[in-house]
Every structure is written in C-alpha cells, then in structure tokens.
Design a protein around this nucleic acid. Structure first.
Lengths: 174, 174
DNA sequence: CTGTTATTTCTGTTGTTACAGAATTTGGAG
DNA sequence: CTCCAAATTCTGTAACAACAGAAATAACAG
C-alpha cells in the first residue's frame, strides 16, 4: 500500500488525536491507515506502510479488535490474517463510546456508589462532601441511562435527531 | 482541609480517570479536591492536602482555569488567591466539552478540510481514500453542528431531553 | 513429523511527560 | 524604596508508557 502525502497527513493527525484521548499513537495511526485503505491489509504490510515494528502492530491490532473497530478476514490461499476497519463514522463513534464507557464510566460509577455509601456511614463527613458526591453520582447515572437508550435507536433515527439540532428543544417542551 | 478517607478515594479515582482522558493526574486531583471542598482554598493548602509540590499546584490551577472549571476569589485581608470549583456537574461537563472541542475537534476539522481539498487536487488519489476522508469530515461537521446548537439550550431543556431517553426517537419520527 | 511462515509474548531501551525543588518575578504593605 | 509573602517559571530527575528486536509459540503445508 502506497501511503500518499494526504494519507500521511491524516494518519499522523489521527495518531496525534489518539494520544490526547488516552489511546496510544500507534493504535490510532493503524486505525487511520485501515480506515483509509478500505481493503483488508495483513499485519506485515501495515508494519511497512507506517514503519513501526511488527510486534507493535500485533499489539495495536489486538487493541483495535477490543474496541471492535477492525475485523479479521482471510484471503483464499493466504495464511495471513487480513485486517479491515469499520467504514461508517457513526459506527466508529458508537463503538469507541461503548468501550470507553465500559472501561472508564462504569468503574467510576461503582466507585461513586461506594463513596456515597461510605459517606453516609461515616458521621463526621462534611455535609457538603456528601452532597457533591451524590450530585455527581446522580448526574453520571442519568447520563449513562440516556446513553444506554439512545445508542439502541436505529441509525436513521439517530441521524434525524442530529439533523434536528437545537430544535429538539421545542419538541421536548410540549 | 482534612482529607477524609472517602474524599481521598474520590480524589484518587478522579485523578486516575483524568489520566485516561488525556488530562494529567494532578490537574484532575486538584479539581476533585476543590469540587468536594465546596469552599475556596488557597494554593498552599491544596499543596498540603494532596502532598504535591506548590509549583505543580500552580500549573494545574492555571490549566483548570483554562477549562473554566475553577474560579479565583479573594478573602478580605488575605493577599492569597483562593480557588473554588464549579459545583454543577452539567456545567462541568459542558465546559470540559467546550474546551476539548476547541483544542481537538476544531483542529481535526480543519485538518480534514485540508485533506479533502488536497485529495481532490491530487489526481492519483485512490477514490476510496477520497470517499472516506469526505465521509469522516461530513460526520464530524454534522456532529459539531448539533453540539453547537444543543449546548445553547436552557439547562432545563437539556435535563428534560436526557430524562426522555430513547423516547426522543418517537418524537422525532413524526 | 518436519520445515516454514505468521503471530504473539517477552525484555530491554528510548522517549516523553509529570513532577519536585530552586530560582525568579510579582505585587502589596509599610 | 524596601521588605516580605505569594505566585510563577525554570530545570533536572524520576516514573512511566511506547516501542523495537529477540525469542517463543502457533498454524499449517508437504
């Protein structure tokens, strides 16, 4: 796969973004490459295209599979695994959201529940502390509840909502 | 400020979360402390409470101010700056979103626009590449457009929408 | 079973970022 | 202007994560 200057620009920036969002650079770069390539690529080829170690590619591919952003395919008469990326940006976003929720929001919620409980038990707890812990818990609870429902809506509905923009406001107010 | 075990638990976890989201640990910890404390604290006291270097606190406070998550107040007869955190979780989330959009999404959008332009000019560009770049650009464009409108809705409307959950789907379909 | 190629795991190195402590600057009081 | 406390900036260090390359394992053909 020949990496053209435009592709390189996109791949490098995507990698940069990744590291600002807590995903490591190689993972994000490989994702970008596969997204653009739009055809299954074997690990070796990815390694060459981006000039990163083969082992690094292997680990990164595993991470991308954990996010369900890429899938493995096979080519007849070729023993190698070929990897291709999810093409739909909506799907990409939702899958990332799903995995991050699982890894970060869920643990945060359970931590908050613990904190609120412990704060109620410990009588010397400052009421302000208790109140703020509870406020944060309710907020996150509410938000994840919303997310759980919205993510299941059909794609077309999701698109329609986004297209509506701020006008949902007036709809809701009725 | 006495940091009780519950507070410590919250602060440490918040710091941990921060680092997974591309915010450094001290910044997130200080934010957590100020959020819980619910009263203005001078930098020195923060430094003691969390056992981090005074200089570190200074830098972190600046970062938190950039996010507009904390504000400076003054106490009569006290030269020191006192810092207090935004209390409303909604506001906290929106301000973080705002700043991250500015720092990361906006540059990504402008990069994508460049890429799409360049891809159109360069005739040897693979059509698949061109198509995927465009798809990603449209998606992000649409999403930020939606965000720009939604963030301006009155808080009550926002809360109402979240409470509705998946039911917005049926509203929209009409 | 054996040899070959693909893939993963392991290990040491490198590079980056967070951070403490020192040095400097700011700013207000007297 | 001088002094002193507060705040910031600077600099070297330490901790950590990313990564390359080597070693090991797995998958398969013949």
């Amino acid at each position: 796969m020949r990496v053209t200057p435009v592709m390189e620009k996109f791949i490098l920036h995507w990698g940069e973004m990744g590291s600002r969002w807590g995903v490591n650079r190689s993972v994000a770069q490989i994702h970008a490459l596969l997204y653009l390539a739009a055809r299954p690529m074997p690990a070796e080829e990815i390694s060459e295209a981006l000039a990163v170690a083969r082992s690094n590619v292997s680990n990164s591919l595993k991470e991308l599979q954990a996010y369900r952003l890429i899938s493995v395919t096979h080519v007849k008469g070729d023993r190698r695994d070929h990897f291709s990326a999810e093409a739909d940006p909506w799907e990409i976003m939702l899958r990332i959201a799903e995995e991050r929720k699982r890894r970060e929001i869920d643990p945060a919620l359970s931590m908050l529940r613990d904190c609120v409980m412990e704060a109620e038990e410990a009588e010397d707890t400052d009421p302000a502390v208790r109140e703020r812990l509870t406020a944060m818990l309710s907020f996150l609870d509410e938000l994840t509840g919303w997310y759980e429902q919205v993510r299941r809506l059909p794609r077309a509905t999701l698109v329609a909502i986004v297209r509506l923009g701020g006008k949902v406001g007036s709809l809701v107010r009725r």
